[in-house]
C-alpha cells in the first residue's frame, strides 16, 4: 500500500511536467519527481519490525532495515540538488536573453531574430 501511494506522487510529478507553462514550474515538478523516487526506494527497503542500520553491540532480533538503499539515496539527493541549481541558473540566463520564462514564448521565437 505504501509504495503505491509513493508511486502516485511520482505520477503527479510527471503530470505537472506535462502541463507546466513556465520553466520554474517545470523545475519544481522535477524536484517532486526526485523526492518521490527517493521515498519509493526507502519505502521498499524498509523492514517492518526492524531497526535502524547503525552498528550497536548485539545483533537485534527483528532484523535490520536495508542499508544499501540509504547510501545510494544520499548520493541521489546531492545530484538532484546540483541539477536544480544548474537548471535555475540557466533559467536566469534565459530570462535575461528572452525577457520571459514562458515555454510557449521562448520556443516559438525563430532562431536568429
Amino acid at each position: 500500500m505504501n509504495p503505491l501511494l509513493t508511486f502516485v506522487v511520482i505520477l503527479i510529478g510527471f503530470y505537472g511536467l506535462s502541463t507546466s507553462s513556465n520553466i520554474i514550474k517545470s523545475v519544481f515538478c522535477v524536484t517532486i519527481i526526485e523526492s518521490g523516487v527517493i521515498l519509493l526506494f526507502l519505502n521498499l527497503g524498509n523492514l517492518d519490525g526492524g531497526v535502524i542500520p547503525i552498528i550497536g553491540d548485539a545483533l537485534p532480533v527483528g532484523g535490520i532495515a536495508d542499508p544499501l538503499p540509504q547510501a545510494l539515496m544520499i548520493t541521489t539527493i546531492v545530484i538532484g540538488s546540483t541539477v536544480t541549481a544548474l537548471a535555475l541558473m540557466l533559467c536566469i540566463k534565459v530570462f535575461h536573453h528572452y525577457g520571459t520564462v514562458e515555454w510557449a514564448e521562448i520556443l516559438s521565437r525563430e532562431s536568429g531574430k
Binding site: F14, L17, V27, V30, I33, K93, Y98, S111
Partner: peptide, 16 residues
Amino acid sequence: GDSFRAGIYYLLLNIS
C-alpha cells in the same frame, strides 16, 4: 544565441 533555451530543454527532458 539560442543556446540557453536549448540547454534548459535538454537538461529537463534528460533528467526526467
